[in-house]
């Protein structure tokens, strides 16, 4: 099945809905779409990237980027803990992994309902100052959001159908 511009647009809509739903329900936080030129973007401090892959009729990976301080804020909000009660980076990593799992799980449901069946990987977390460079055989789309005036980036990478067939 070729990757058509229409499908990319669909993913954009799905991502927006999934991110809003997960942050609203689990963290009681409102997420707003933002443009890349927003002053809050990009984060100047080290960031946390949580990734969940999907593989099947459609194959790719979704990364969710936040600053490390905002990731900590998300962990506190999701678990109902104060900053002092958050027990190290492991707890923050687990929360960010779970957020990615929920976002991509909902994305997967939308894809499967459109016939693009796939299975998910277990979440993984990367911390530091870096950027993900797409390979030429993949298509990449970055979605910018703000949450409590902090930047939140969601990057979707999808492998081209020829790659998937290989």
């Amino acid at each position: 099945m070729p990757i058509t511009p229409l499908m990319i647009a669909d993913i954009e809509q799905l991502i927006g809905s999934c991110v809003t739903d997960v942050f609203g329900t689990m963290l009681s936080m409102d997420v707003h779409p933002a443009s890349p030129s927003d002053p809050a973007d990009p984060p100047s401090e080290a960031h946390v990237a949580s990734a969940v892959g999907f593989s099947g009729v459609i194959t790719g990976v979704v990364y969710i980027y936040t600053s490390s301080s905002f990731a900590r804020r998300c962990a506190g909000s999701m678990l109902g803990l104060t900053d002092a009660e958050i027990d190290g980076d492991e707890m923050v990593n687990d929360v960010m992994g779970e957020i990615a799992n929920m976002v991509v799980g909902n994305l997967k449901s939308g894809l499967c309902d459109r016939g693009l069946t796939c299975v998910l990987t277990i979440p993984s977390i990367v911390r530091g100052r870096f950027s993900i460079e797409p390979i030429s055989s993949s298509e990449r789309k970055v979605f910018h959001f703000t949450c409590e005036s902090r930047p939140l980036l969601v990057e979707v990478m999808i492998k081209h159908s020829s790659e998937r067939a290989a």
Partner: peptide, 27 residues
């Protein structure tokens, strides 16, 4: 408890003999 709310997944869960299911995110 599932992060996947798609029709196929819901049907699969229903056939497994569970009492109920909950889709993440949940309140």
């Amino acid at each position: 408890l599932t992060a996947e709310s798609g029709r196929e997944n819901v049907l699969k869960i229903a056939k497994m003999g569970v009492r109920d299911y909950l889709v993440k995110p949940f309140k």
